[in-house]
């Protein structure tokens, strides 16, 4: 009896601040200004302007997720093999940048990427061609990779450190070479970490509006920018909610995927 009572404050909190608000997004999304039922706000995703924004968002976030994965996996392997007995130290290195405001960190890339910025000065010094990616989709991808890389590294690192070294040794004893051991033992065992990393990078990358504002030079609108404008500038909450429902479908798909591959939540790091 006593313990049942203990769950009440939290149940109340969940209902009031998680479930009801989400329900309201859905409600606004499927009604118009008069409160009548409509699918117009959701179908609005099909208009040229919105579908283009969604398409660019999907493309950029998929590319960023892939780059994060390719950069993070080798890094996680190196870190896992380094015998750093301080697990917390590795986590720290990736959490530490968070203490400097992420808007400022992303802004700093403007300074680094500018035509006469730091990177181009270095390239010029080395007699290499200049890099002109500021205010292009490439700069947005760079910003996404920069901001979300830690969320890919940590889950993969965690799942790699959990692999029993005896399993690896057994594979080697049985005659597998390094490559075979990796493909048939290490990689499959790290799948939960990979999936959890993909979820944690793809969702924020798909829905960001800040990175595109800061590095895309306000020319490139992502779906996050469109929704943000509907709420803070245009004031059409119904349309904004309708587009959010479309986003949530992607997120839901992603969550189901991660639930299937990562049953025990062992990829969860944070």
């Amino acid at each position: 009896m006593n313990k049942k009572m203990l769950s009440l404050p939290y149940l109340f909190w969940c209902a009031a601040f998680i479930l009801i608000p989400l329900f309201m997004v859905v409600y606004y999304g499927i009604t118009d200004k008069t409160g009548a039922f409509t699918l117009e706000n959701i179908c609005a995703i099909a208009t040229a302007e919105h579908s283009k924004a969604l398409w660019i968002s999907i493309l950029l976030s998929l590319i960023s997720t892939l780059i994060c994965l390719l950069l993070a996996y080798p890094l996680a392997m190196i870190l896992a093999h380094m015998n750093v007995n301080q697990h917390s130290f590795v986590v720290l290195i990736f959490i530490l940048p968070m203490w400097m405001n992420f808007l400022l960190r992303t802004m700093a890339w403007q300074t680094l990427l500018e035509k006469s910025g730091v990177i181009n000065s270095v390239l010029e010094f080395l007699h290499l061609p200049a890099l002109n990616i500021i205010n292009t989709p490439s700069a947005i991808i760079l910003g996404m990779v920069y901001n979300f890389l830690p969320f890919m590294v940590l889950p993969i690192y965690n799942s790699l450190t959990k692999i029993d070294p005896n399993v690896i040794n057994a594979a080697k004893d049985l005659g597998a070479n390094g490559f075979d051991t990796f493909i048939r033992v290490t990689l499959p065992l790290s799948v939960p970490g990979i999936i959890s990393g993909i979820t944690m990078v793809f969702v924020p990358a798909l829905t960001t509006f800040v990175i595109s504002t800061l590095l895309g030079g306000s020319k490139i609108l992502l779906i996050g920018n469109v929704i943000e404008q509907e709420f803070t500038q245009t004031g059409n909450w119904h349309l904004g909610s309708g587009l959010s429902i479309v986003l949530m479908i992607f997120i839901l798909f992603n969550m189901i995927l991660s639930a299937i591959f990562d049953k025990d939540g062992e990829g969860n790091t944070l």
């Binding site: 309201m24 997004v25 924020p204 509006f209 909450w237």
Partner: peptide
Amino acid sequence: LNAEIVTGISLMLL
């Protein structure tokens, strides 16, 4: 797991 923008607008509506 949800997008921050969705959490943000859902609370704003509430």
